[in-house]
């Protein structure tokens, strides 16, 4: 219980932006984290991403939107005293004392080239471009390593039997961080498989929404041609001025 209260206090503390404008003397709680094996003392309320920067690293890769949307900052870590390997987004996860971590900026994987307009809407499309899906052993490691808490194994299995709707639904929130693919014992690239599934489902499984159809027709008829031509004919300087003076909601 005591530890929990402590965590709650740390979270309350975190309301203050610690990376800027706060004197380190005023920070009460500190933790030690190990970045690629080297220990650093960092304020307890940082995210992994800000803690890495606090420790002095400048991230050129493994960082993106900082909002949990882009999937660039995938981290693999182990908590102190645990054998389980965790995967999360560095910008969305708070540091913990004794955490060992490393950033995984990219998952090496070849993207298949295909034309969805020429593919039949059946299971063979997955076997054709990603035959390794057939190597899935249902170990569920992909699901366990998904920072988005997706049922990754379920959608891989749906792909094998050609259930496009299930692939699309179960993978909808995928941010393509690649953690599933890095840990898969069958060496499947789950997120590419899912993308193929969503594309096929989008084209053949869904009916086109009326408003989208209407807008596409308007574009094709040239309703916005004049406005587009005005913008595309402007110089860089003019565009920058327009951008700076644009109407926007207050921050």
């Amino acid at each position: 219980m005591e530890e929990k209260t402590n965590i709650m206090e740390r979270i309350a503390e975190a309301n203050r932006p610690v990376t800027t404008g706060v004197d380190e003397k005023d920070i009460k709680d500190w933790v030690t984290i190990y970045i690629m094996g080297k220990g650093y003392r960092v304020p307890a309320d940082l995210t992994i991403l800000t803690a890495i920067e606090y420790a002095g690293y400048r991230l050129l890769r493994s960082v993106g939107c900082r909002q949990g949307h882009c999937g660039a900052c995938a981290t693999i870590y182990r908590r102190a005293g645990e054998y389980k390997l965790q995967a999360d987004l560095a910008c969305q996860t708070r540091v913990e004392d004794g955490m060992y971590l490393v950033q995984i900026p990219f998952s090496p994987a070849e993207k298949a080239i295909y034309d969805i307009t020429k593919e039949p809407y059946d299971a063979s499309v997955f076997i054709k471009y990603y035959p390794e899906v057939a190597r899935c052993v249902s170990c569920n490691t992909c699901t366990k390593s998904c920072p988005q808490d997706l049922e990754v194994m379920d959608y891989v299995q749906s792909a094998i039997r050609g259930d496009f709707e299930a692939v699309a639904d179960d993978s909808f929130d995928c941010i393509q961080c690649g953690m599933c693919a890095i840990r898969c014992p069958a060496e499947i690239v789950q997120y590419h498989v899912a993308q193929l599934g969503r594309r096929m489902y989008g084209r053949y499984g869904l009916t086109m929404p009326k408003h989208l159809k209407k807008r596409v027709e308007e574009i094709e008829k040239g309703k916005f041609k004049e406005a587009m031509d005005t913008i595309t004919s402007k110089s860089r300087e003019e565009l920058e001025k327009m951008y700076a003076e644009r109407q926007r909601e207050p921050d």
């Binding site: 299971a123 063979s124 499309v125 076997i127 054709k128 035959p131 057939a134 094998i160 039997r161």
Partner: peptide, 12 residues
């Protein structure tokens, strides 16, 4: 590949 049933690919 596309002519084969899943059962063949998975077992292979």
């Amino acid at each position: 590949l596309v002519s084969l049933p899943q059962i063949a690919i998975v077992s292979a």
